[in-house]
C-alpha cells in the first residue's frame, strides 16, 4: 500500500520552527513517505544562495537563543542547511512559492539548487491533494 504523503508549508524563517518542520519531514522520509515542502515568505528567504546559516529567531524563540546556540555548537542539533541537504538526499521535493518570490523580489537564479520548481498555491494544493498537510 502506498503510504500517505506529507506536505509542509514552511512559512516561518525562525530556526526553531524550521528545525521542527524539517524534523517532521525527515522522520516521514525515513518511514518511506513522499514529502513535499512549499516554502513561503521568511522560510523562502532561507533558500537564497546567500542566506548562510545565521541563527534567525522570532520573538518567542529569541528568549531561548542560548539553549539553541549551545546545542548547535555541541552538534546535538543541525544547521538548517544540513537539514535541507539530508531531506534532499532522501528525496524531498522543494517548491518555492511564486507569490513570495514576487513579494520579496527573489528570482529563481537566487535560490539554492535544492529547489525543484516554483509554483503557486493552487498547483501545490493540487499536488498535495492526497497528502497530510501542515503549516509551520
Amino acid at each position: 500500500m502506498q503510504k500517505k504523503g506529507l506536505a509542509l508549508i514552511l512559512h516561518s524563517g525562525s530556526y526553531d520552527r524550521l528545525y521542527q518542520g524539517m524534523s517532521v519531514a525527515l522522520a516521514a522520509l525515513a518511514l518511506g513517505r513522499v514529502v513535499k515542502l512549499f516554502f513561503t515568505y521568511w522560510a523562502l528567504e532561507t533558500l537564497r544562495k546567500d542566506a548562510g546559516d545565521s541563527l534567525i529567531l522570532d520573538e518567542e524563540a529569541r528568549a531561548h537563543r542560548k539553549i539553541l546556540e549551545k546545542n548547535l555548537k555541541e552538534k546535538h542539533m543541525q544547521k538548517i542547511s544540513q537539514l535541507y541537504a539530508q531531506a534532499k538526499i532522501m528525496g524531498a521535493k522543494f517548491y518555492a512559492c511564486t507569490q513570495s518570490m514576487g513579494l520579496l523580489n527573489i528570482s529563481r537564479d537566487e535560490l539554492v539548487k535544492e529547489v525543484d520548481k516554483s509554483m503557486g498555491l493552487t498547483t501545490f494544493l493540487t499536488e498535495a491533494l492526497e497528502d497530510q498537510l501542515l503549516f509551520i
Partner: peptide, 14 residues
C-alpha cells in the same frame, strides 16, 4: 551519539 530525535533514525535510513 549526541544527535536529537529524529536524526538517529534519519542517519540510519540514509
Amino acid at each position: 551519539v549526541g544527535l536529537f530525535c529524529p536524526l538517529p533514525v534519519v542517519k540510519l535510513k540514509i
